[in-house]
Simulated assay, not measured.
Amino acid sequence: MHDYQKRLALNLLAYAVQKNLSASQLCSLSGIHLNELSQESNFSLTTQQLNNLWLNATKLSQDPLFGLHFGESMQAAALGVVGELVRYSRTIGEALTHAAAFTQLITDLFAMTVTRTDQSFIIQFIPDTNRWGKSPFVFRQMMDFFMAFTIHEVDGLLLKKIQPTMVSLPVDGPDLLQYERVLRCHAIQNDANYVMEFDRRYWDEPILTADYELQSVWLRKVIELDESNSAKKSLSARITNFLMANAYIGVPSLDAIASNLNVSSRSLQRKLQEEGVTYQQLADSIRKSLALHYLQAGQYPVKEVSYILGYNELSAFNRAFRRWTGTTPVSYQKGQSAHHAEAT
Rank of each mutant, 00 (worst) to 15 (best):
L176F: 04
E205Q: 15
K160W: 00
F317H: 05
Q336V: 12
R319E: 09
Y179I: 09
L272I: 10
E94N: 07
T344E: 03
M142Y: 00
A192N: 07
I122E: 11
V82L: 03
L290H: 14
V263A: 00
L34S: 08
Y248N: 10
L292P: 01
A111Q: 15
Q48T: 13
R238K: 08
E342N: 14
A297D: 13
K161H: 08
H186E: 11
Q333N: 02
N318D: 15
I126D: 13
A237S: 08
G31L: 07
R270V: 12
Q124P: 03
H152N: 13
N51M: 00
N42E: 14
Y248R: 12
K303V: 12
N52C: 06
S253M: 05
I286A: 04
L176I: 11
L261D: 08
F137A: 02
A338W: 02
A247W: 03
A231K: 15
L225M: 14
R319I: 09
P252D: 02
Q189C: 10
K160V: 12
I151S: 03
A338C: 01
N262C: 02
Q178I: 03
F317N: 06
F317Y: 06
F125M: 12
Q269R: 09
D128W: 05
A341Q: 08
D128A: 07
A148T: 09
I126A: 05
N260P: 00
R7D: 11
G133M: 06
P64D: 09
H339L: 15
I223V: 15
L314G: 00
H2M: 12
H69G: 03
C185F: 11
T58F: 03
A23M: 10
T327Y: 04
R323L: 13
Y212G: 02
S230T: 10
L96C: 06
R7H: 05
N20P: 00
